[in-house]
């Protein structure tokens, strides 16, 4: 248990630092690279929670596909690659205040509700179980999501097409 807690602490620290760098970096490409660290950290947390299938999907979809999309987006919009200071707008302080306020509320509520609750991973959740419930109990949401993906595909093509 100690090893897991140490692993959690190290990964979480790396994630928080990287996340802050994502939203403060002065360079767009660098922000995207920090985002990779955060996403990989999320995958590692899934492994700690014994959710291996979700972790693999996280790596494949987020790091493999979404980051690439972001990099394409950065390139196609010809954002400057080198240093550039002007990526933030003039309401940074307001934004920081709102974020801190939200964090205060969330931290208070979570501490109030789940203080001392332990996660016991004695019953493993296997990939087979995930598959069974997606294609069993949650078949309808699954089908709806597939239709949504199709709609997004068509929508993205229509939007980005030159005509």
């Amino acid at each position: 248990m100690v090893a897991q807690n140490i692993a959690f602490g190290v990964i979480a620290a790396a994630m928080v630092i990287s996340a802050v760098r994502v939203v403060t970096a002065k360079n767009v490409v660098r922000a995207a690279l920090y985002l990779i660290i955060v996403l990989a950290g999320v995958a590692a947390q899934y492994i700690l929670l014994a959710a291996e299938f979700t972790a693999i999907v996280q790596v494949l979809i987020y790091i493999g596909a979404i980051i690439v999309l972001f990099l394409f987006g950065i390139m196609l919009t010809r954002a400057p690659i080198g240093q550039e200071g002007d990526l933030d707008n003039d309401q940074r302080w307001l934004a920081g205040l709102v974020a801190l306020l939200l964090f205060g509320v969330l931290a208070y509520v979570l501490n109030d509700a789940f203080n001392g609750a332990q996660i016991r991973l004695n019953v493993p959740q296997t990939t087979a179980q995930v598959g069974d419930s997606i294609f069993g109990a949650y078949l309808l949401p699954f089908e709806v999501v597939s239709v949504l993906l199709l709609a997004a595909l068509v929508g993205a093509i229509v939007l980005a097409r030159r005509d």
């Binding site: 309401q91 307001l94 934004a95 205040l97 709102v98 974020a99 306020l101 939200l102 205060g104 509320v105 509520v109």
Partner: peptide, 11 residues
């Protein structure tokens, strides 16, 4: 920003 702040205040 107003939306998030209002949500926090309502919470």
């Amino acid at each position: 920003a107003v939306l998030f702040a209002a949500t926090a205040i309502f919470a």
